[in-house]
Write a protein that binds this DNA or RNA. Structure first.
Lengths: 134, 134
DNA sequence: AGGTTGCATCAACGAACGTCAATACAAGCC
DNA sequence: GGCTTGTATTGACGTTCGTTGATGCAACCT
């Protein structure tokens, strides 16, 4: 139920980092039990954020940074896209709870939220042997 | 490079279960290094397939089945959607390499492909401590 | 053969998405 | 103050997506 309100940036998007921090990891497995509508909608939002090559590359660039954070000014020129487009994708990743940002002087820095990734990973993990090559 | 050709169903979609089975898990981590365009596009296709509540519920219903497989006739009535819509979503999940199917008499059975899920899970896994609650 | 049931495909619709140029805002510098 | 740089927002565009009714096809059953 924790809302993040990035006043620094002045965006009033009200990112819902809800994420149900209370629920145990074991109960949130894809293969454990059929998803109810609410959880499915909640998860679909995050996966949809990952369902774009540009956002995937952005997140990868952010998450693989040694400093743990990247300036937008480093991200934008890495793409053959306009600056507003990059900004839009970053906003979507942020609304999905995958990254967060902070303005520092003129520049804005983004970093990944490892918990969100870890939750997704454990959600996709199949408890079984997971053998079969196909 | 293995192509699946479900002649049983008569679909000539040429599902690319490519998945680069040769690459080691360690090299395919999100946070390991910036993704190149090709890998990003390949992965985005799979995440996009997961980016819909209906498909997420479908996959969950399929993956959580004890038998390991489900008849479409069990899936369709679980949704408030038309039969073509469910069929369409199943097709997308199959094209993403997440599930597979087989016709058995009049009925068609679907099952999950655990390897695909495992690959995604390991891709999202961040090697670091992954501490920070936010 | 004809009829029925289960599921995929087709064609069309509105809604959502990705992209951009133009603009607005924030912070630094002169 | 005005100018410049970095980033977010707006409004518009074409494209893709989710959904549906209609149709097609495959397998069963008389």
């Amino acid at each position: 139920m924790s809302k993040q309100r990035l006043e620094i940036i002045g965006q009033d998007v009200d990112v819902d980092v809800d994420a149900d921090a209370g629920a145990d990891a074991c109960c949130r497995r894809l293969a454990a039990a059929p998803l109810d509508d609410d959880r499915a909608a909640e998860l679909a939002k995050v996966f949809k954020a990952l369902g774009d090559p540009v956002r995937l590359r952005l997140l990868s660039m952010i998450a693989s940074q040694d400093d743990g954070e990247v300036c937008v000014c480093e991200l934008t020129p890495a793409f053959d896209l306009s600056q507003p487009t990059i900004s839009h994708h970053l906003k979507l990743l942020r609304q999905a709870g995958l990254i967060d940002c902070e303005r520092r002087g003129t520049w804005v820095y983004y970093w990944a939220l490892p918990d969100a990734l870890a939750r997704l990973a454990s959600f996709l993990t199949v408890p079984r042997s997971a053998g079969a090559t196909a």
